[in-house]
Design a binder for these strands. Structure first.
Lengths: 145, 145
DNA sequence: GCTTGACCTCAAGTAAGCTTGAGGTTGCAT
DNA sequence: ATGCAACCTCAAGCTTACTTGAGGTCAAGC
């Protein structure tokens, strides 16, 4: 297969383990782009395999598609992203991951004092009020980020 | 207020910061029970304040209501939970929290090697396949637990 | 006894991240 | 030229964790 060949959505699905519907969904959300054939079918670049892999990996780290989109928009438009481009993104993600780990650790460290004692006072509980971390958030599932 | 007084749903809401609708929702899900007055209104025990506080706190640690329910079902039925009861639960939760932190740490440690290098090979990526961690999961939002 | 706020139920809406299905088109092989 | 898999769009459904609203009842103060 020539490196200039374009991939169908099915090809891309097979290479990434995603379903075509998921890929269309991501395109809808602006996480990748496609060209169209005369007959209106999508054609993708080979570099989109990497792009989707990135999405899958970073999703496992707990980032939302929204957040992933922001990172992806920092990639260069028009040229295939270089190693350095990806490295810059991975740095940014590692930092937020570090923050989340630290947060979870401090929550854990307060767990015994807070629940273990049985007092469970919402007013004094460090766990419940660790500096207003993850305070609001509107409707929908609330996940610690 | 006498310790034997029952609380209305509004009282409980005020004491916990939850809305009445959220409390009804939790009752629906079996996370707490209520008695009813002759006029079909809910009445709660004072120990339900603690129960709800527990739910709120543990939610911040990232557990789903489903998981929280499982923990709560391990509490004694019929008697007010003791400090020791709560302590046992907090131990169990701390352990799963520890596991999650360890998982995140190993993901982070692989981040540079995996994304940073730009290869992003799904087959060889440790990040993507850290022993099938968080593998499947059906529809709906996928969050690393 | 009457008003008023708090309560009740049930249905529908919201957000995220997709899937599933209906109804129709394309593209490749024979 | 035709058959069939793969593609297309658009609408609706699913899960989690709730909220909002409609339409109606209860309880407590005056």
């Amino acid at each position: 297969m020539n490196p200039n060949d374009l991939l169908t959505i099915g090809d891309l699905a097979r290479r990434t383990g995603l379903t075509p519907s998921a890929i269309r969904f991501y395109e809808d959300k602006g996480l990748l782009q496609s060209h169209r054939t005369g007959g209106n079918q999508r054609r993708f670049l080979r570099s989109d395999i990497r792009r989707l892999s990135f999405i899958l990996i970073v999703q496992k780290l707990g980032l939302s598609l929204e957040e992933i989109g922001e990172h992806l928009r920092s990639l260069p438009q028009g040229r295939t992203p270089s190693s350095f481009d990806w490295w810059k993104i991975s740095e940014a993600i590692r930092e937020s991951l570090d923050r989340r780990i630290a947060q979870l650790q401090s929550l854990r460290d307060n767990l015994d004092g807070c629940i273990g004692c049985g007092c469970l006072s919402l007013k004094t509980c460090k766990l419940y009020n660790p500096d207003d971390v993850a305070a609001e958030g509107g409707p929908g599932p609330r996940v610690l980020r």
